[in-house]
């Protein structure tokens, strides 16, 4: 399915098709299956077909997967990349935040009666070669995280889960701004952050996921 273009210069031109959670997950899963094969997205498809509150759990598991990815990325960077003291301090703060997002999302999924996905296998390639490469990859992850939450949030049914997602996405945006600034880039390159659907996000995250 096509990406919803929410990063419009004017709100009235925001091209956003309201979907229920089931179809959001289902559309993303079908599109992802076409690219990566059905086995990769089986759990998401099953969830999307199920009725009831499963949609929120699927969205939370989707968010959890991204948080696992981010969390692993910063943890490894702190071990493998030679960072200046300023960037190291930033990476430590972000690593802690992402780890707490993982814990909170796992707990929430469990509390909703769902089963939390496991941490994916990861491969960040040459991302840890030096500080510059680390920052560039961090920017990719943080901007992607913002777009993923912003894209999924309107599909969340529970206001409490929505509040939690909103609370997390603001922190992701703060991370994005700081890693951008550290890399000499604009902290907020656009007046409206882009929202991406699951297909686009999974496509962007895929190169870093090995299983």
């Amino acid at each position: 399915m096509s990406t919803q273009k929410l990063a419009a210069p004017e709100l009235e031109s925001v091209d956003f098709e309201p979907m229920d959670r089931g179809s959001f997950v289902l559309k993303g899963a079908i599109a992802a299956a076409a690219v990566y094969g059905v086995s990769a997205v089986g759990p998401l498809v099953r969830g999307a077909f199920a009725q009831g509150s499963s949609g929120d759990i699927d969205i939370l598991n989707y968010a959890l997967t991204l948080e696992f990815l981010e969390s692993a990325f910063y943890e490894m960077a702190l071990k493998e990349t030679k960072l200046s003291s300023e960037v190291k301090g930033i990476a430590e703060t972000i690593a802690k935040d992402e780890a707490e997002h993982v814990t909170a999302l796992e707990g929430t999924i469990k509390d909703l009666g769902g089963k939390a996905v496991k941490a994916p296998g990861v491969d960040f390639g040459e991302a840890f070669a030096d500080e510059k490469t680390f920052l560039t990859t961090a920017i990719t992850f943080e901007d992607l995280g913002v777009s993923a939450y912003n894209g999924a949030a309107p599909m969340i049914k529970s206001v409490d889960v929505l509040a939690a997602a909103g609370s997390i996405v603001q922190v992701e945006a703060r991370h994005a701004a700081v890693v951008r600034f550290s890399n000499g880039e604009s902290p907020s390159p656009m007046a409206f952050d882009e929202a991406l659907d699951m297909d686009a996000v999974l496509k962007a995250a895929k190169p870093f996921i090995t299983s």
Binding site: F16, P154, G166, A173, A177, V178, F192
Partner: peptide, 25 residues
């Protein structure tokens, strides 16, 4: 959580995270 129209929610979210970026810097 109080916004009813999903389009307006999506738009508000896209502004919200930009405000977060400004605040962070």
């Amino acid at each position: 959580g109080a916004i009813e129209d999903p389009k307006i929610l999506a738009a508000a979210l896209s502004i919200h995270s930009v405000e977060g970026r400004h605040a962070a810097i």
